[in-house]
């Protein structure tokens, strides 16, 4: 085998090895700090005991009329209901879960907006959120993406 071929083979080997390492490392490091499991709100509603205290992200819609901000503070409380299209536990599809959050909210956070809250379910059955991300019900995000993508 010529030295050029050996070099190529070696390169291919190193590249595949490195790629496999990255893939494996990220895919199978179970409790890695940077991975957060994502659940629709119905999963949390259906098995509160199993979920309590676990760091997760939860998706849902903000229930109409449930947003409450303590005046002059950044403390919010609101209810979320499961995103219908993703529901797997039909029995709790109509229920809501209360979320507490402290911090600034995105401009897209409002009634009916689809939100993702990151945090953990507390022992009192209220989801304590450390982060709040809101998808936009209107077309702004879509428009931004479209405008910025090509």
């Amino acid at each position: 085998m010529s030295s050029a071929k050996i070099k190529i083979l070696l390169s291919v080997f190193v590249i595949t090895g490195a790629s496999a390492y990255v893939v494996g490392d990220t895919l199978f490091a179970e409790n890695a700090e940077h991975l957060t499991y994502f659940h629709n709100a119905d999963v949390v509603l259906a098995q509160p005991e199993a979920m309590t205290g676990k760091r997760i992200r939860m998706g849902g819609h903000v229930e109409k009329g449930s947003i409450f901000q303590k005046k002059g503070t950044l403390e919010y409380q609101f209810d979320v209901r499961p995103v219908l299209a993703m529901v797997t536990h039909q029995d709790v599809a109509e229920k809501t879960l209360t979320v507490r959050y402290k911090g600034t909210v995105p401009d897209t956070f409002k009634e009916d907006a689809e939100v993702i809250v990151g945090g953990a379910l507390g022992a009192d059955g209220v989801f304590e959120a450390k982060e709040l991300i809101a998808k936009c019900p209107s077309k702004y995000e879509a428009a931004k993406k479209e405008a910025g993508t090509y």
Binding site: T26, E33, H34, T36, R57, G118
Partner: peptide, 10 residues
Amino acid sequence: GEQINVGPSF
């Protein structure tokens, strides 16, 4: 078969 999110730390 499970859904996860990745953040900037990832």
